[in-house]
Amino acid sequence: MGTLNLWLILIIGGLATYLMRLSFILIFQHVQMPLSWVRVLRLVPPAVFSAIVFPELLVRDGSVQLSLSNLRLIAGLLAAVIALKTRNVFITIASGMVILWLLQWVVPMIH
């Protein structure tokens, strides 16, 4: 596959995604959704976030690990504390990554 074809596929895919999302914005800007729907839709981002993050933090080698040897869990908990203190997504993500890298570097030295 040539480079031009790859770029064409990426551009068309990006445009299709953009137009699909824009269509919902344009449709629902004039429609008043029922309050029950609004309440339910507020729960979608935390549910999606939990479904992505918790397996990464809790599951190691196919089983849930809640021990101190689970460095991702420790880094995630420390990042959660930082998130509560700073309310800044970038600082939270960056600090969580740095904490995990430091733990992965320091812990093998201890053992």
Rank of each mutant, 00 (worst) to 15 (best):
L35K: 12
I27T: 02
V44G: 08
L43Q: 14
P45F: 03
W37N: 04
M33R: 15
I27L: 06
A47C: 11
Q29P: 00
L41V: 04
W37A: 15
P55F: 01
V38F: 10
I52H: 00
M33H: 05
Q29E: 03
S36Q: 14
P45V: 06
F28D: 00
F54N: 07
P45G: 07
F49M: 14
F49A: 15
L35F: 02
V53A: 09
I27D: 05
I27K: 00
A51Y: 11
L26H: 03
P45T: 05
I52D: 03
I52S: 02
R42Y: 15
W37T: 13
P55Y: 00
L26G: 08
V40S: 11
R42W: 09
V40M: 12
L41G: 08
Q29W: 05
V44K: 00
V53F: 11
V40C: 13
V31C: 05
I52G: 04
L35H: 04
P45K: 12
V48C: 10
P45Q: 04
M33C: 04
V53N: 01
F54V: 06
L41A: 09
L43A: 11
I27M: 12
Q29K: 05
V48P: 07
R42N: 15
V31H: 10
P34R: 15
A47K: 02
P45M: 09
R39Y: 11
S50Y: 02
L43P: 06
V48R: 05
V31W: 12
P46I: 01
Q32I: 09
I52P: 01
F54Q: 02
V40W: 14
A47T: 12
V31Q: 06
I52L: 14
W37R: 13
S36V: 12
V44Q: 09
Q29L: 02
V44H: 07
L35E: 08
V44F: 04
V40H: 08
V48K: 08
M33L: 11
L35Q: 13
F28Q: 04
Q29Y: 01
V48M: 15
P46A: 01
W37G: 13
F54K: 06
V40D: 10
V40P: 03
V53W: 08
L26W: 03
V38S: 12
F28W: 12
V48D: 02
V38G: 04
R42M: 06
A47Y: 03
L35M: 01
V53Y: 12
S50D: 04
W37I: 11
P45L: 05
P46Y: 01
L41S: 08
V53S: 00
I52A: 08
I27Y: 09
F28L: 06
I27P: 01
Q32D: 05
R42E: 11
A51S: 10
P55M: 05
L41K: 05
L41W: 11
H30Q: 01
L43K: 14
P45C: 02
F28K: 01
I52R: 12
L43C: 12
S36E: 14
V48F: 10
I52V: 11
L26T: 02
V48I: 13
V44A: 11
L43V: 07
I27N: 06
I27W: 07
V44L: 13
P55W: 00
A51G: 15
R39P: 01
L35Y: 14
L41H: 03
P55L: 01
Q32Y: 07
F49I: 08
Q32R: 13
